[in-house]
Design a protein around this nucleic acid. Structure first.
Lengths: 222, 222, 222, 222
DNA sequence: CATGAATGAGAATTCATTCAT
DNA sequence: CATGAATGAATTCTCATTCAT
């Protein structure tokens, strides 16, 4: 009916309670996806009244959006951390390596958040899916674009390259790389799935070699 | 013993009826995924008795497997067609272009089959999901590997390249390319989504340029 | 509608086919009871058309009655065999022992027929149950009554005994004895369940001792 | 973990509502047995929502177990009442008479509970059937054994008797006696079915006479 | 503001029976 | 007379949401 945020009540709860609810909600959505997730089950695990959850978030959809926004924030924070962690004199290719590692680490440390992302990609048809995913992708595309422009300025990337194609390229390969680490069936050929750090480092080096040549025309890896 | 195919009954129906049922089933699964797809809804749209569908396929899962197998066959046929359509003296890069186009065309001509594939990718709680996806990926990975080895033999690809990384690379970029053409939210940056053929041709050329340099070290496109 | 026997068609089939159908039907009813038995399953196991079964017997109920009548005949034949097998000079108590053994043997040799009898007793509420069971019990009561009257004549049983009570007594104990041999949970105390022949013989002797004293007032076992 | 009793919700309802639900559930199970009993029908008769019944008991099986446990409690209470009602100087045979009467009375006062017991006896495909029946039989066998041992001590029963056979005997005859009072088809010969109290008294006396002689060797009834 | 019992539409699946071929 | 595809009511069970307390 009214567009007012029904989360006002929720935000008055103690931080511990808020966090427990968010944590269990992520768990539920990550495990079952949006439609198969059960408010009944969630409420039982939380040990709170069913009515309360609806008072806090209005509906299952409201809860999901709230929870997903939190996840996006976590992902953005992680990306910002790499950005700021990149020393000014690191090469474009070092930064790509660092980004690949950051993706793996984020998904390792937040497996359920990452699982939620995977589920969201193709599996579920619920309202606002597109806008939610866009929130993520605009952020990541901007980050990659920034990296590429910087690389061109520094002369590490050919100035003749089509920037949007390059962004698409990086996005596809990096996204798939993290997926291949976490999703077994996508590893049929590559040996990335839950590989040791050394193996991953080697894979990343090989990928960056190809990207480097592709973007520049000559070998520029360290 | 009683393990005989429960589709025996179905296969005796008139071809028209069979095809109508398959078509509507693909539609249903493609739109709603496995769990949210409704046998009730499907039966109502088909105008047949609920019991009939269960007589044909035994269960919702049985119907899904049957339908999915059909889709896999269609996809394999499409890939075989490219394979056989590739003239012997076409370069590796021509073949990559042809493959990208074939992907777009297949998805254009069978949007719901392609939609079903997208849905299947990340759904965890799914009957036989892993084996189904493997069926597809083994086929596509072998095809790409074959192309790459041929390219190395012909001297179009550097012999020092790591083959599994190259396969991973091609798979990721081509898969994502077709996805970006069909799924709006993945096009934030690239302008691929439902683009005109000329634009697509241009995008494909740009991609192949980068791949070519990355795989070889010098520009080898026609 | 009409009371005509629809089994006319069935009885024209080859003896082998008739017997196979009866055998599998007994199996189905014995395993699942009347209501849970499935004509679909039965027809599939038989490999004949579903319509045929209905042509032969009109309905599930018709099939059951036909099958059950056959079982009753088998039981009657078994009882008649004991009757005729009893030599004229065997004592009443010898005959009781023989009857107990005959019950065990019949159930051993026709476990599914006996299973059907057990199921029928209390489990199922279908039309004509009472009359079907009566068919059996009138026969068995008459047999026991005959035995008792003979025993009184021969002076093996007190003439003051209440005959109907004695019949009730024998019926209860013998019936329960065979049940305890076949139904595990009724053996909590007695050790009869699937006991060796020697143990059974011993149990029978003990029972007959008590019956003998109860019917006569003095010990008359061999 | 989540194994807490799902009847928590049910037990908070008003006593009247609880009792109405239990009463109608016993009625349904008693009339139709477990598998043929219908939650739909039950809910309709109760005039409550389908979901409520499942919230109370989790499943049809859960409802059955709850209801059956109640019935077992009622039966145990009845037996305890006889036990405590037996004055210390009553003879073994008086106690047997009292037990037979108690059985008749219990079944008269709780015809549907007794009907449920009868249904349970032979149904094979039943959740927890064996353990449920054992619950009952252990209780009754112990009671009878206790009576018999007491009778031997008091010199009312021959010390040479085989106790387990005697228990089996009493159990069979008493169980069948109550059954014959309630189930028409088992009365073909005895005239027990729904007989007047005087007739029953007579029948019981006759039975006890035979038991008495059988257990002792001489007439010991009052 | 918290509670949690009540709701009832909707899900997948089964099955005896019919009837056109 | 045999066949077996079609039927559709009935089954158990789930779940987001509401609202009186």
């Amino acid at each position: 009916m009214t567009g007012e945020a029904p989360t006002r009540v929720f935000l008055k709860l103690s931080t511990e309670k808020q966090q427990r609810i968010i944590k269990e909600a992520i768990h539920e959505f990550s495990r079952y996806g949006f439609h198969r997730a059960s408010m009944n089950r969630l409420v039982e695990r939380l040990g709170i009244a069913k009515g309360s959850l609806f008072q806090y978030f209005g509906s299952k959809e409201g809860l999901f959006q709230f929870v997903f926004d939190r996840c996006v924030s976590m992902a953005k924070d992680a990306l910002r951390k790499i950005k700021s962690g990149n020393s000014g004199d690191a090469s474009f290719y070092d930064k790509i390596r660092a980004t690949a590692w950051a993706g793996i680490k984020f998904a390792r440390e937040n497996p359920e958040v990452y699982g939620l992302y995977l589920r969201l990609l193709f599996q579920e048809d619920f309202p606002l899916r597109d806008s939610l995913i866009r929130k993520l992708h605009i952020f990541s595309a901007e980050y990659l674009k920034h990296l590429i422009l910087e690389g061109i300025e520094r002369g590490e990337i050919s100035p003749e390259i089509d920037v949007s194609t390059a962004v698409f390229f990086l996005d596809a390969v990096l996204d798939r790389f993290v997926q291949a680490y976490f999703v077994e069936f996508w590893d049929a050929e590559s040996g990335i799935f839950r590989a040791e750090d050394e193996v991953l480092q080697n894979k990343i080096d090989n990928l960056v070699k190809i990207i480097a040549r592709g973007f520049k025309g000559y070998n520029s890896e360290s």
